[in-house]
């Protein structure tokens, strides 16, 4: 076996692995989204329009991610976070541009679901911070959706 054939074989094997794993990774973030949407479902009856788009990825335990969000005074927003890892514990909180916690006290955290509620006092940028607090997985997929009314 020539060295170039060995390299070719290794590269091909790596490519096959990447192609085979890619849909699985995507599927997991999509799964996380379906849990986030599940958390949002009861709020639709209360007049919240849930955005089709969502934000997601994967995080290690105690790792945080911030999503910058333009919010408008006069609207009311809920952010819902979910993961498909049922033994995980996640949290979501909303801060203003100065880093001050600005959410309503009725936010909640129930295992692999969490919700944060904000009625912005000003129009501008806010930071939605998501965290995987506990998880049996090394990396945990998460998805964030939001709704407004």
């Amino acid at each position: 076996m020539t060295p170039s054939f060995q390299i070719f074989r290794r590269v091909s094997l790596a490519l096959v692995c990447v192609v085979a794993l890619a849909p699985v990774t995507r599927a997991s973030v999509d799964d996380a989204q379906s849990f986030a949407l599940q958390a949002a479902e009861p709020y639709v009856k209360d007049g919240f329009q849930v955005r089709e788009d969502y934000w997601g990825g994967d995080l290690g335990v105690a790792e945080k991610k911030a999503v910058r969000q333009q919010l408008f005074k006069g609207n009311e927003y809920w952010f819902w976070l979910g993961t498909e890892v049922e033994a995980a514990k996640v949290s979501v909180h909303v801060y203003d541009a100065d880093g001050k916690l600005v959410e309503q006290p009725d936010g909640w955290q129930k295992g692999h679901f969490a919700g944060a509620h904000i009625i912005p006092k000003n129009t501008g940028s806010y930071f939605v911070i998501v965290e995987i607090e506990q998880s049996p997985e090394e990396r945990t997929h998460w998805a964030l959706v939001y709704g407004f009314r």
Binding site: K65, R68, S125
Partner: peptide, 18 residues
């Protein structure tokens, strides 16, 4: 949740504005 966070500290992990 902490009442304050250092947004600058998190800046490397901030996604584009939605």
């Amino acid at each position: 949740a902490p009442k304050h966070v250092d947004i600058k500290q998190l800046s490397k992990k901030v996604d584009d504005v939605v």
